[in-house]
């Protein structure tokens, strides 16, 4: 039963072309290790340097967004301050392209602002995104954003197709947020 259950679980992931999937509490250390394995896997498959860079960059920005903004966090002191943020990062391939999906819980109060930013980016062409990135690089950071604006633009810039995103309401105060990028 045990093996059957988990085999079915793994088969579902494999059928969706998923190469790596992480769900749970993310830290910078996990980000590093997953990122390293991801680059090695792509290099072993003779993926070209530019594609490896793009996939890695989107992976880092998405993971760091979860670490910074997930509304599901545990904090405490274990000799030093430790903060762990819960979320999901999934990397796979479909139709000859890589895709990276991140998911995490966000608060109702932050949702409209995030949706607005993502809609703006989805409506932009390649050259517009590049110009917007250059403009934001020269701007002081938004109050409380910890660099979110430039991170999302970087993600959109590396995407081969317009970014896909969605929000699934959990309750009055929270949504599950998902962002998918194809490269």
């Amino acid at each position: 039963m045990l093996a059957k259950q988990y085999r079915a679980f793994k088969s579902t992931l494999d059928e969706r072309g998923i190469v790596f999937s992480f769900s749970g509490y993310l830290s910078e250390g996990i980000l590093y290790s997953l990122g390293d394995a991801l680059r090695q896997k792509m290099a072993l498959e003779d993926t070209d340097v530019t594609t490896i860079k793009k996939v890695f960059s989107v992976f880092v920005e998405q993971s760091q967004n979860i670490i910074r903004y997930s509304a599901d966090k545990v904090q405490g002191n274990l000799g030093k301050t430790v903060e762990l943020s819960s979320g999901m990062v999934t990397i796979g391939s479909e139709n000859g392209r890589f895709f990276i999906v991140c998911g995490n819980i966000i608060l109702e109060d932050d949702m409209e602002k995030l949706r607005g930013r993502l809609e703006t980016l989805r409506g932009m062409g390649k050259d517009e995104i590049k110009a917007y990135y250059k403009e934001q690089l020269r701007e002081p950071p938004d109050e409380g954003s910890r660099g979110a604006t430039i991170g999302l633009i970087e993600i959109a810039r590396r995407a081969s197709d317009p970014i896909e995103f969605d929000f699934d309401r959990i309750d009055a105060d929270r949504h599950f947020f998902c962002l998918k990028v194809s490269i």
Partner: peptide
Amino acid sequence: YFNSSSAK
């Protein structure tokens, strides 16, 4: 390689 906050 550098991330977006390093780019800034």
